[in-house]
Write a protein that binds this DNA or RNA. Structure first.
Lengths: 255, 255
DNA sequence: TTTGACTCTTACCTTAGGTCATAGTTTACC
DNA sequence: GGTAAACTATGACCTAAGGTAAGAGTCAAA
């Protein structure tokens, strides 16, 4: 009957002694017995169990769940795996998006020769522009979608990027003026730029139709769905409300 | 001059008050001033800085690093991003392989109608090292290897030692599992770490090229040249064979 | 018998905050 | 002006999975 001390078992399994102490306290791996001096002694069965623990640990299961799996033979292993897989999948997707964002940002760092984080901030809030497009789509249904997207396609990539960049600038400028009234001239001047920009996205720059209601509607949409005013992944209610107010005022007085 | 209380700023930025307390204590975001009752008051600049903090946080930067980036305008942003990206990439690769492993395992659970974790555990001492003596030495050329060795020369000494130490760790962990099948999930999880390590040796961590053949080739090299599988000064043939088998299996099923 | 290696428990540290608890402050309403 | 509600401050303890260290006890070889 072979017995292992903590040090021996730790070395065999490639973990630290502290880890074995912890597993003992968590009930994840109890020693076979204790000597009268309280020394932990492990047998073959314990080594085997430890291997199993490490197996699940490699798969990123939390220790508590591992304990349940090993202690309860009726544990629904398949279910556990399925759940776990979904969690891993989510993390992977998130990492993929992060990687894309970082790639994009590094490219901008290179191209624009940006020197500090403030410029970077500008670059990343570009996502804001995308939300405007989604807003237009959701607000006006499929037929307007396709018309608008057709327009975007004809517009060409350079102009598109141009408009997006401009929107990002506008959004940043508006945020910087949120301490003023949405009806202030200073803000309304920015709203005008915002309005012109939106019209170009919509492809209705030369349309004779009244755009006032549409623009007001877009502003209200910003209020009801915070996805459209998400900045850098954080919804910004204050910004949504401010922007919406400013847009409504603009539409009522200028259009 | 607009001032925000903690609650207001928290709401605007979409974080908790506790978070602002924490950021204050960490020196990540200090309030503009304190009232005589010690209340924190933030201004526009603080709001802007908070936005930046959240931006980097979204990208998974640790808070301490964010503080450095924001406080030191000469901080090498590009370098920081590159390092960070590599870390994220490694995590993503790891998740990808874990997902494949879990898929495979779930498939086995289905097919073999396995009911508990013990069934997952294959091949207890049923296969000895002698089984692997059927070495296939002449399958792959070593032109891939010479390319790798070139890279090692270019790699700095510090990184080299780091990676070497990690390899020794992995090797010991693998040896501890040689009583299992090289194809067992438990061993394959370690092989994943080995694989990631090797890729860094090769300098191909971000390469999109298929690495399967190269990795398999390396495994077979272990069989022919015992310099590559020397542990603590002793060559270990059984380990070489075991490792080689595990690597081949890994390359064929995961890559 | 002494030394060195090993082991024990206890406890504090790490991330990025969450969740109370207690006490002081400001605002709203009557 | 008084009171109650809402807000704020600090401090403490909690999370996962251990790392690191302190202080004390134990074992084996010289």
């Amino acid at each position: 009957m072979v017995k292992y001390t903590v040090k021996q078992l730790a070395k065999i399994a490639g973990v630290s002694v502290r880890t074995l102490h912890l597993y003992d306290r968590l009930g994840l791996l109890k020693p076979l017995l204790r000597t009268e001096a309280k020394y932990r002694l492990y047998g073959e069965k314990e080594l085997l169990r430890l291997q199993q623990v490490l197996l699940y640990k490699e798969l990123d299961f939390p220790l508590e769940e591992i304990r349940q799996i090993l202690d309860d033979p009726k544990f629904d292993l398949f279910e556990a795996f399925a759940t776990h897989k979904a969690a891993l999948q989510t993390r992977k997707n998130r990492l993929e998006i992060l990687l894309k964002t970082i790639d994009k940002t590094m490219l901008e760092l290179k191209n624009k020769n940006m020197l500090n984080h403030e410029d970077l901030y500008e670059g990343l809030s570009k996502e804001t522009a995308d939300t405007y497009r989604k807003a237009a789509i959701d607000a006006y249904g499929d037929e307007v979608i396709s018309k608008a997207e057709n327009h975007l396609l004809k517009m060409g990539k350079r102009n598109f990027e141009q408009l997006k960049a401009e929107q990002q600038e506008i959004a940043k400028a508006i945020i910087a003026k949120m301490h003023l009234s949405p009806e202030s001239v200073s803000v309304q001047a920015l709203i005008l730029r915002h309005y012109e920009n939106i019209r170009q996205f919509w492809g209705t720059a030369h349309s004779e139709d009244p755009q006032a209601e549409a623009y007001k509607g877009l502003g209200e949409l910003y209020l009801t769905d915070e996805r459209y005013t998400t900045i850098d992944g954080k919804s910004n209610l204050a910004y949504a409300q401010f922007l919406s107010k400013a847009m409504t005022y603009f539409a009522e007085t200028q259009l």
